[in-house]
């Protein structure tokens, strides 16, 4: 921030809060993330449990579950994404308005989980849509989901809205729609979206062990 920290503290003690517009917007955004009401499998039950009395997601401003993707900011992919369901998940993502975030909850959404070896399970939802936060577990406890939510809030608070390294949704040329895969004769076509899915592959050079 361009303002002198001491001056800012002095002003704060007198009731004047000095901040940048970017921080104000990010603060507002991070504190009222509206998730999409969208349960896929077992993890959805823990997601519901996280919003109920004992864990109370409302403390973090994210209890307003919207059944319509048009009104939601955050997609919690809670459960196994099968190959039949993957096109619908991508469509739902496309229907959400920017800024939008994705939280992959549980082993299945991250990598296929225990059902990975099966013929009908997508091996990670990050093959088609960009995932911001992953919450491991099978299923993750509600506390873990809340921890993931707080991590996402931190990420949102640190977003750059102007300049060269601005975030996707602040960039007029940023990618907003993901291509929806189709159910081909053997598998989903295409099997992944190379713009989103960039696994770290070690390419060995000649002579290297």
């Amino acid at each position: 921030m361009a303002i002198d920290q001491k001056l800012a503290d002095d002003l704060k003690s007198q009731g004047v809060h000095v901040t940048s517009f970017e921080q104000l917007i990010n603060w507002g955004r991070s504190s009222s993330l509206w998730p999409l009401q969208f349960g896929l499998a077992c993890c959805a039950i823990e997601m519901i449990a996280a919003t109920m009395a004992k864990y109370d997601m409302a403390r973090f401003g994210a209890e307003v579950f919207r059944p319509s993707p048009r009104q939601a900011d955050l997609m919690i992919v809670a459960g196994t994404v099968t190959k039949k369901m993957a096109p619908q998940v991508v469509r739902l993502y496309n229907q959400m308005a920017e800024p939008k975030y994705v939280l992959a909850m549980g082993a299945c959404a991250i990598s296929g989980g225990p059902f990975k070896e099966g013929y009908n399970v997508l091996k990670g939802v990050d093959r088609y849509i960009p995932v911001d936060i992953v919450v491991p577990g099978c299923p993750p406890r509600p506390e873990a989901l809340l921890d993931g939510l707080i991590a996402l809030q931190k990420k949102v608070k640190g977003e750059k809205l102007i300049g060269k390294d601005r975030v996707r949704h602040a960039d007029p040329n940023g990618m907003a729609e993901m291509p929806v895969p189709e159910y081909g004769p053997h598998d989903l076509q295409p099997p992944m979206n190379p713009e989103v899915w960039k696994p770290k592959a070690k390419i060995r050079k000649e002579g290297e062990a």
Partner: peptide, 10 residues
């Protein structure tokens, strides 16, 4: 079939 996880085959 939207949640067919091939439990029996596995």
């Amino acid at each position: 079939g939207y949640l067919h996880r091939n439990h029996e085959k596995i």
